[in-house]
Write a protein that binds this DNA or RNA. Sequence first.
DNA 1: ATGGTCTCCGATAGAAATAGTCGGCGACTG
DNA 2: CAGTCGCCGACTATTTCTATCGGAGACCAT
Lengths: 151, 151
Amino acid sequence: MLKLSKKTDYALMAVQYMSEKGADRVVNTKEIAEEYNIPGELLAKVLQKLGKKGLIVSQNGPKGGYLLAKSPADISVLSVIQAIEGHVGITECYHNEDSTCMQMPRCNIRTPLRNIQNSIYGLLDSMSIAEMKEFGSATIVPQSRLYGHRT
Amino acid sequence: MLKLSKKTDYALMAVQYMSEKGADRVVNTKEIAEEYNIPGELLAKVLQKLGKKGLIVSQNGPKGGYLLAKSPADISVLSVIQAIEGHVGITECYHNEDSTCMQMPRCNIRTPLRNIQNSIYGLLDSMSIAEMKEFGSATIVPQSRLYGHRT
DNA sequence: ATGGTCTCCGATAGAAATAGTCGGCGACTG
DNA sequence: CAGTCGCCGACTATTTCTATCGGAGACCAT
Ligand code: FES
Ligand code: FES
């Protein structure tokens, strides 16, 4: 729990991959799928979603494929995650209207959890794909990434 | 995704509740279940798990129930979460042996994600139940909670 | 000691989210 | 105009989560 779905993993891998290949190189689904042993059809759906969210740009026809829509430094990890998972809530009932949560009236963890959630968002949002790559080699995670959740 | 399970919610509520009631007051399952509209049997299991992990102490017999094992300031939010969810990994394959992950050989997001995960752990670990309660009223989340994951 | 209250535990059923598949359509290149 | 590749929706299978049940054991009060 507190776990990213496989689809999200795939999305991050794909974006990383594209960022490694450079801005001009069009990569297609099959290429990525084979590189990482991902079921092709599933990855296809993931990439389509990323495309719809404007994170990557598609190019049809033979020799077609995908391209990052912006510089890796301008793509936040959070945006990728949200593109795939949609609404992300650390708990079922982040302050939301149509929540059928039975414990709302007396809930004593709503606001605290929401704060924690915002902190996590802040961290994820402040980290770009480009940075993530660096952290792959380094073992250090930057400080002061907590407060200040943008979206 | 990135979501706490209901059981964990219940666990946090219950611990919060006990912390509110004070150290000497024995509370039983039914009491908490009614307070928050939680299915009793399920909550029972949750509390049993917390007991097994040594976070709370059980007391059998009539007038029995549960008690916090330590001061609310010494119980980290992370410990409660882990008690219920067991191993918590932001991704399937946090550096782990028996992972059957097909993309390991080439995975480009393992280490970065692991760092992010550690950051989140650090935040969760550094926050105690007592603190969480305060953050319920305040809307601010403390800075510099990132690096420095204990466990 | 006995009955009622409460924790403890394993098994199980039902519901929901995830992972992965399939088939057809449309766009583009050569 | 044929092959390649993205686009899309429906579908199935698998796993995880939620909740329930039934019975055993501990304890206190009377
Ligand atoms: S769990 Fe739903 S409001 Fe707190
Ligand atoms: S997703 Fe399994 S190793 Fe990266």
